[in-house]
Design a protein around this nucleic acid. Structure first.
Length: 245
DNA sequence: ACGTGCCATAGGCCGAGCTA
DNA sequence: TAGCTCGGCCTATGGCACGT
């Protein structure tokens, strides 16, 4: 093992220590409290040393954001194998909301701080040939397409637009939970379930084939849903909408 | 033993935000 | 609005490891 290798190893270790300390500060005090001096204090180095490993505070935040997003995707992963598309959607979004509540600071970092952080994370992932963000988005679109194919959603439903509107709605739930102390008044899962009932109505009435009455209800709901989803998206947008991966 | 280069540090500059 | 504080960043300098 050569000298260069050892130095590289030591450099990597220090880089990890910087990230560990930064992660702890963000989790404990939020991104606003993350400063180069504070990180330096935590790892017992001078602030300038940090710049040998990271270009700036922003770069550290971007790395943490990329990690957080990967963690979110990992959380969703087990639910992607649910056979029924409606149940799969509900499981995915329940997990999404639960992640946002359980990992508040991570969620804030990903979707509610500087949009360039998550933008850079997506860009670097794409450059590295990792398209998991887009793949996750497609999985939701595919589930909606399956529901359409099974006659549980009207064929006129625009799956991409619905996915984005659904995302904005779920983001709204998480954002409200993080910023409004009186929300929700009922268990969070009930809120998610109620959202799904409102959105999909008959799609949950039967798995193999929805009853005609339910299908009719769904179609009627879908026709008036453009306004509804638009309002939900607009409401969520006030807290910075999540960018599309 | 000495020269070289890398790395870490102390100290300071500058800008932004806060406060009296 | 001036003074103060804080945080990001820069730079001169010294120590240390390594090569010759």
């Amino acid at each position: 093992m050569g000298i260069a290798e050892r130095k590289n190893r030591e450099k990597q270790v220090l880089r990890e220590r910087i990230l560990d300390a930064s992660r702890r500060i963000v989790m404990r005090e939020g991104l606003a409290a993350l400063s180069m001096r504070k990180i330096a204090d935590a790892i017992e180095y001078s602030p300038a040393t940090l710049y040998l490993h990271f270009e700036s505070r922003d770069e550290i935040a971007r790395v943490l954001c990329t990690e957080g997003y990967a963690q979110l995707l990992e959380t969703l992963q087990p639910h992607l194998s649910v056979a029924d598309p409606a149940d799969r959607l509900k499981a995915i979004w329940r997990a999404y909301v639960s992640f946002g509540i359980t990992h508040q600071e991570t969620y804030r970092l990903i979707f509610m701080e500087d949009p360039t952080y998550i933008g850079a994370a997506f860009a670097s992932a794409r450059e590295a040939g990792d398209d998991t963000g887009e793949a996750a988005f497609r999985l939701v679109v595919d589930a909606l397409d399956e529901l359409k194919a099974q006659g549980r959603l009207p064929a006129s439903v625009d799956s991409v637009a619905w996915t984005e509107a659904l995302w904005a709605t779920m983001h709204g739930i998480v954002a409200l939970r993080l910023t409004c102390p009186v929300f929700p008044r009922v268990p969070l899962d009930n809120v998610v379930d109620a959202t799904f009932d409102a959105w999909f109505g008959g799609a949950y009435a039967g798995h193999a084939a929805a009853p005609a009455r339910a299908r009719k209800r769904t179609a009627a709901a879908a026709s008036g849903r453009a306004d509804k989803s638009g309002a939900a998206a607009a409401s969520a947008a006030k807290t910075k909408p999540p960018p599309r991966p």
